[in-house]
Design a protein around this nucleic acid. Sequence first.
DNA 1: AGGATCTAAATGTCAGACTTTTAAATGTCA
DNA 2: TGACATTTAAAAGTCTGACATTTAGATCCT
Lengths: 242, 242
Amino acid sequence: MKIDPNSPADLSVQIAQAIKDAIISGELIVDERLPSEAELSDHFQVSRPTVREALKRLAAQSLIRTQRGASGGAFVNRLSFEDAYAQQVTTSTLLLSMNEVSFDTACEARYALERACAPLSAARRSADQLATMRAEIFRQGQPGLTDVAFCASDVAFHRALVDGAGNPVLSYQLAGAVEAMQPLMNMITFTARDRAVITGLHTRIADAIEAGNSGAAVSGLQDLEDETRKLASDVFAARSGR
Amino acid sequence: MKIDPNSPADLSVQIAQAIKDAIISGELIVDERLPSEAELSDHFQVSRPTVREALKRLAAQSLIRTQRGASGGAFVNRLSFEDAYAQQVTTSTLLLSMNEVSFDTACEARYALERACAPLSAARRSADQLATMRAEIFRQGQPGLTDVAFCASDVAFHRALVDGAGNPVLSYQLAGAVEAMQPLMNMITFTARDRAVITGLHTRIADAIEAGNSGAAVSGLQDLEDETRKLASDVFAARSGR
DNA sequence: AGGATCTAAATGTCAGACTTTTAAATGTCA
DNA sequence: TGACATTTAAAAGTCTGACATTTAGATCCT
């Protein structure tokens, strides 16, 4: 782990990068304790606050965790699926909100990805995951549900569908995409009729998943995508028409 | 933007979260200048180093950028697709390397996602993207190519395939998944015969994309997945057998 | 008017001290 | 001897104050 004191880049950036590289290369392994801040500042020939800023950068990415007290220090963190998932949701949400990604683009991506796991989910879903899907469909049929709550339930339904594939890598990738779309979805208001159509499609998808019929699940998702996009275009048209 | 001085959480964490929330909620908009470090430390009633650590956390996530000099300061960053993509690759790579994700799991996820964009790519790919795919296939046929270079070309091929879908959200999600798998792929050695089979499948896929035949593209990807997994299982079996 | 210089504001870095947390060593008592 | 309380030391967290560096804008001179 070395840094170049003549580089134009900030020292704390360089130090963070050096440690990050050491972690990625396997030089530092999970749960290994990094040298103390004092030792690091000595090693890199910089002050302790500078080292600290570098460590904060890494902590922000969940690459390390710090512990106070005797035998404390900074430890290489095992990046959990939960951490990765949380980061992905934040990144995706910001990306969508800051880059004028159109609803259609986001929607297309989301359903394309979901259709990719439908066959796996049809083959492997647990009874529990199926029950979750059914429960969310039931909730979606309840009168008096706010639009935001309806959307949240929608996300939960799709989350169960994705988790049904039994592939944590897929879940991690997809859950981010689905959840990041929620703010966009929340802009839509659903009439009772819209809700009926959507929950009908959800039922069709759940039935297909239960029967292990992957083709039906995919086509149900396709119809759901078409329906969602139609709904959204109506809403946006009405909004711009006013 | 407020913090709770009695919270058990570290101050710098709280401050970072408060600013992050302000960005996500739209209270702070893109390119807006944050108050100076001195003003922030005054506002939150903490010292400047503490504020700085908080800002470093945000900078690590590309949420803000800092500029020195007069009229410098911290600015809300527009999260670009490139930044998001880079973060995703790092996260995915670490996730795979630290969590003993099996080759099969990662492979399954990757190809499931790729099959999801094949139909879009078949419908929309540009001539340029198709040319990139052809060029990579050609490169893969060159003798004397190292295994690592072969893998890199493989990634470039699939990258072009994904980009062909013309959906930046999909590209961002998928490129990360594909690239993160590269270290795993690099563990495999390819015989000349293996390479011939793979480039053959690549050609089949490229042909299907060119013809706009999405079904053929999907089945080509399916066969490529089967082939890759068979290859990997052979390699791992041979390795453990020694 | 245009370019060189100066100035001020902001971040980057440093040094050292103090506070808080935590685990381990030590001591004490039943 | 063993369980519990106490001390201690190490480490991160925080603060104060200072200086260095960068940069935009104001000022001044030609």
